[in-house]
Design a protein around this nucleic acid. Structure first.
Lengths: 338, 338
DNA sequence: ATGAAAGCGCTAACAA
DNA sequence: TTGTTAGCGCTTTCAT
């Protein structure tokens, strides 16, 4: 095992030229059976593995895509990643993953490193939607797909989850169960998800001719505590809502704690739907109905977009895909009589 | 933006030789200030990024380490990964991650691909502790660090979490609070973690002269349902335990559900410690005391081992590191009077 | 301080 | 069916 064997060593051992060896390791055919076997044997004997670096230099492609996420510890991303990897493997692509810790500085370094490595494309949830720091990708003409967050400074294929439709579905579900006094615990209205999820709520009420009641719209900040407070606020209304829609997972948790503290009966006294599934959802009794984002699908579509872009470059127009979230009906909503 | 600029293009534009450009981009010094600036300007102007592939061919190193995990969706691994990445970045290494879905077949492919790419080392939680499918790494003399699961077929540096000590700590905590009737919900005894966690339980009892009572040892399979059943089994004892130790996270959840169903008062009627932290731990009332594994530290140490191994190859003996888990004391254990 | 030139291991065009 | 050979873009030694 002196030093790594190369194609020369194999050729020598099999007593052929390197070109023939190359043909064999690339399955290009046109090699006599006997020769091929001799080569295969030599490869095995030497433990030869071809160098991707050398190959890349000729081929100008690496069959590798880079994935950049802001926080690998957030369970959303590993799930998306799983979807990407699965599709990538089907198409014989490999995936390299880096996490930026929400830092655009680190993100830029990663991008540069990915380019050095010659990734064929990049899937990114950027730490900064401005995207100024991503210009390198544009300049190098490297295909990019944005996931969950868009990029403003240049056009790329984008895969988002449809917030409006998601909260619409949630609220509609409540309405169809007979609820009219439906409260929403909002996220910050200056963020896209916060605002859009409120929009979906509003739209559902409008479509079913239910007037928007300001008392039932309480503000939160996507944090657990705010969900807790908001719920208590709702409980103090003389006319309590019969249903609550929470705009995100953390506030859902705060809300559950409040319901518990207040002895406000989940499911029978007040129905509930939350945006985003949470671990505790099936642990609670009754189990929580939620709007879940299909992370796996997000990843799959992201890869498919990227794959198309790698193969067709600028021949196809940039695409945007809004994935409808999925309403997972469990047991936290009850039919009520009006 | 015709095609990617190379070192030639830069040299031409800056009117120097490629050797000088190389010196600049590698900070090797010995270049006149003025020349350097001209080169830097040219680099910027062209948007030049050097090819890692070409560089690797000469240098025989990639400053890249490969990480292989069995299931990226299991939150344990992203947390370990975060620790690895952090340390790696400090040392100017990059990290590429792949998930095997617990399949040794896929694992072998990934290993091969990593070798093709010339990773300087590999950190792996293997899908099959036999490790026969990992021989390639040994043959190519590529440094390997095993994490959380050992590799039997050849010797590598290993980072494990000390299961015995972890459960010992948990049970000791219970004993020190005055408990003597301490039950354990075991994991499968034919798995290392399952067996070792039982060993720690046994050892703690021995050390404090508490006889092992078979009625308090119930078998589970690391699944939620088995934790549920086991707890119910314990509740039927004429002399109920005053404390329960659960050997893993899922069984903890099952146990909690059972406690709830049985109206068996967590904290005051029965104390509880679980192995591994769970999301619901702080959501419950009282909050759960658990033995938590310091994933981040696991990752950090794994990288440090690998880094040493990359630099010193076989000059240092193989190391094994058992990280003590951490007892996180919350409120699910109460002092009792004997 | 700078340049010329020899590879690194591979693929692919061309020849035989 | 097989072989010869010219690069791919870079680093590095040896001259200058």
């Amino acid at each position: 095992m002196e030093s790594k064997p190369n194609i020369q060593d194999v050729a020598r051992l099999a007593d052929v030229s390197i070109a023939t060896v190359s043909r064999v390791i690339n399955n290009q055919g046109g090699v006599r059976k006997a020769t091929e076997e001799r080569i295969l044997k030599a490869i095995k004997e030497l433990g030869y593995i071809r160098s991707a670096a050398a190959r890349t230099m000729k081929r100008k492609e690496t069959k590798t895509i880079g994935v950049i996420v802001p926080d690998i510890k957030n369970p959303f991303f590993p799930l998306v990643m799983a979807g990407i990897e699965q599709k990538a493997r089907e198409k014989d692509y490999f995936t390299i993953l880096s996490s930026t810790n929400e830092s655009p500085i680190i993100e830029e370094k990663i991008v540069k490193n990915f380019i050095e490595r010659g990734v064929d494309g990049v899937i990114i949830t950027t730490a900064n939607e401005d995207g100024e720091h991503l210009k390198l990708l544009r300049e190098q003409n490297i295909p990019v797909v944005a996931v969950d967050r868009s990029i403003r400074s240049f056009e790329v294929d984008t895969v988002l989850v449809d917030n409006i439709q998601g909260s619409y579905q949630a609220v509609q579900h409540l309405i169809l169960q007979g609820h009219r006094k439906i409260a929403i615990i909002c996220g910050p209205q200056n963020t896209t998800p916060g605002f859009e999820r409120f929009l979906g709520y509003k739209k559902a009420l409008e479509d079913y001719n239910i007037p928007l009641d300001d008392r039932y719209v309480v503000q939160g900040d996507f944090g657990e505590y705010s969900g807790n407070i908001a719920t208590k606020q709702l409980s103090e209304l003389e006319e309590r809502p019969t249903a609550i829609f929470s705009s995100n997972n953390l506030m859902t948790i705060g809300c559950m704690k409040a319901l518990n503290e207040l002895n406000w009966g989940l499911g029978y006294e007040v129905s509930f739907v939350g945006f985003d599934d949470v671990d505790i959802a099936t642990f609670l009794n009754p189990k929580l109905t939620v709007v879940a984002r299909p992370m796996n699908t997000v990843g799959e579509i992201a890869f498919m977009f990227l794959h198309d872009r790698i193969n067709f470059k600028d021949d196809i127009p940039k695409r945007k895909y809004s994935i409808p979230p999925e309403l997972i009906i469990r047991h936290s909503c009850r039919l009520i009589n009006r």
